[in-house]
Amino acid sequence: MKRQGPIILAFAIGMLMLIQFFTPAAFFKEAYNTILDWKQVVLGFTFILGTWSLIRYHYIKINRKRENWQYSYVTLAGLAITVLAALIWKTAEGPYPWLFNNVQVPMQSTMFSLLAFFVASASYRAFRARTFHATLLLIAGALVMLGRVPIGSYLSGSIFGVKISLVAISDWVLNVPNAAAKRGIMIGVGLGMTATAIKIILGIEQTYLGKTD
C-alpha cells in the first residue's frame, strides 16, 4: 500500500497518457486533458508547500538567531506584502503589479546583469589557448562575440576574391557547428528522457518515492 499503490497508480496514469496518442477515441482524449488539468492543480498546491518550507526555514533562522537572521524579516515581509496585495487589491492592478514591475523585475534583471562581470572573469580562465580544444572554444567564443557588436560588422575582407564578413562567419558558427553540437545533445537528452519516462511508468525507476520503508 505504501509503495506498491503509488507504483500501480503511476503505471495506470502513464499508460493512459500514452494510449491516447495511439487512439482516436474521444474518451482517451478527454481523460488526457483531465489528467493535465489535475496535474496543474497539484502543481499549484506544491507551491503552497514550497512557500511553507520557505517560511519555516526563515522562522527557524530568526528563532535560533543564526547568522544574518535579521534579513529573514525582509524575506517574510516581502512575501506577506505581495500575497496580501494580491488578495486585497486583486492581481490586475494596484500594488501587486506595482511590486512586480518596480521591485521584482528591476532586481532580477540587475542580478542577471551582474553575471556579466563574473562571466568576464570566468572567460579569462576558460578562454586560455592551452590545448587544441581550448583554442577552438576561444575562437568560437570570440567570433560570436565580435559578430554581435557594431565593430564586428566593419571587420570584413576578401579571400580569393570572395568577400567575407565577420558577422557572416559568426552566424555560420552559430548555425552550423554550434547547431550540430546542440542538436546532438538535444537528441541525446531526448533519448535519455524517454528512457527515464518509460522506466518510471514501468516502475523500474522509483527514486521519486523517497527512501524505502
Binding site: 556579466a116 562571466v119 577552438l136 575562437i139 568560437a140 560570436v144 562575440m145 558558427v173 554550434n178 553540437a181
Partner: peptide, 15 residues
C-alpha cells in the same frame, strides 16, 4: 564540434 558549440554558447551568453 562540442567545443565549438560550448564556445559559441558562452560568447552568446556573455553578449
Amino acid at each position: 564540434f562540442l567545443m565549438i558549440g560550448f564556445g559559441a554558447t558562452f560568447g552568446y551568453n556573455v553578449m
